[in-house]
Amino acid sequence: MVLGMETYFDARFVCRKDELRDLQAAWNKKQRMLGIFVMRSVGTSRLAKEFLASVSGQYDELIYVNLHETSDLAAMYVNICVQLNVSFESHQNDVKLWANMLANAVSTRKTQYVFFFDNGEYFIDKEAETRDSLHNLCVALINQTNIKVILTSTTRFELDSLRRISHVCELQPLKPTATSELLRADAPGLDYGEYLDPIAKLSEGLPLLILMITSELRGDGGIFTPKDMAQLLAEYRLKVLSREFYPEKERVADVYRIFINRLSPVLQRRFLELDYIPSSFTAEEARSLLDYPTEAVVKDQVLVPKLRRHFIT
């Protein structure tokens, strides 16, 4: 088992065939970096792991780094050195030296490596020090012919200077048919009746929410019926899916809160102001509310980022 990475999944992996084909095509074209970007809880990590399992015969060693659980740059580099069995000294004040040392250490090996940086937003969204250092490390790694890099993140991260050898996969929420398929697959034998479509719609196509819904429907001998669940989701969605016995990182309310807290204060304020509007609104209404000079500016700086990064729609 790769250090820190689960190799067994309780939930069946369904759908995402198009995305897997997209990643496979990029892999076959010798793209050296694959970036999977998406709003939180749509399944970037799971997709990356499924893809890596599908091409496991095409590389020798996987280096897995969960940037959510990595406290700083030095810890990240030490983690990688340990997995590579590379001796290291303390060079916290010279991150370029770390990147070059790692690249040089593996460049002379015949081993084919995949470096998998998971939850990249925890470094990309921080100060320039961590974002730029991750950028420099990825560049140093993919310049080696025996290394490929996979990065998952809720924040888009591209290496502009290396677009020729990098590939972007933008993951969207599950479509209604795929959502229904996952609901049925994770609660086999359950008769949803007329409530399958309403539950699918209320899950927003987010795999985390879907799996929590099916867990509730299966639990306690089926204390919740599909009819109960449809009503609860419509009226108390955050409360139902954020109960204290769920791990904190899986409680929907906490997922929302952590995601919002990571946004810049300015972006938080803009989103909050838009969420005060009780119904749909036009770009002109958003421009007027936020006091922006033109519709084009409010679309570029607020509405598009909101649609791409803020998943409480």
Rank of each mutant, 00 (worst) to 15 (best):
M212G: 05
N136C: 00
L84F: 10
Q144E: 04
E170Q: 12
K30C: 11
V304D: 05
S203Y: 09
K29N: 15
K148I: 02
Q58G: 12
V78F: 03
L190C: 03
P247S: 11
V38G: 15
I63M: 08
L206P: 05
Q24F: 00
L47Y: 08
S54K: 11
N119D: 15
G189S: 09
E127T: 08
V38H: 09
Q92D: 11
A99F: 01
L289N: 01
K306I: 03
T282N: 07
A99Q: 05
M229L: 04
R218A: 12
I142C: 02
L263A: 04
F13W: 06
L97S: 02
Q301W: 03
V297R: 10
L233W: 06
R257V: 07
R46L: 08
C138W: 02
F51V: 05
V14T: 12
Q31W: 00
D18F: 03
G35A: 15
I147V: 15
S242Y: 10
A11H: 14
D300Y: 10
L171E: 02
F259M: 12
T294I: 01
L290D: 04
T44W: 11
R251D: 07
L34P: 06
V255C: 12
E248R: 14
F117I: 01
N136H: 00
A48K: 10
V65S: 04
S203P: 06
L303M: 11
D191E: 13
